[in-house]
């Protein structure tokens, strides 16, 4: 598993886990960040917030928040 923040713009991933308090997990889960959900990093400019496309909508996340979303890259043989 890797942190969502490590994805470059245009790369895809699958949500595996969320780290944080109930409040944080509840908010992100409602926005569609649940295990198995496919997401695309729309914009990651190496500083400042990132934009993620998930379940048909676009969500801006602070870098700190994007570190607490754990993902895997779509199956290419390697990974966990």
């Amino acid at each position: 598993m890797i942190e969502l923040i490590t994805l470059q713009s245009g790369e895809q991933g699958l949500v595996r886990a969320l780290h944080g308090g109930r409040h944080f997990i509840g908010r992100l889960a409602a926005l569609g960040f649940t295990p198995g959900a496919q997401l695309t990093m729309v914009r990651n400019d190496s500083f400042g917030p990132v934009i993620i496309a998930v379940r048909g909508s676009q969500v801006a996340l602070g870098r700190g928040q994007a570190q607490r979303v754990l993902i895997t890259r779509p199956s290419n043989g390697q990974g966990s």
Partner: peptide, 11 residues
Amino acid sequence: EQVAFIMELPL
């Protein structure tokens, strides 16, 4: 702590 920035970007 820093506030979590979580915001939808509507179409």
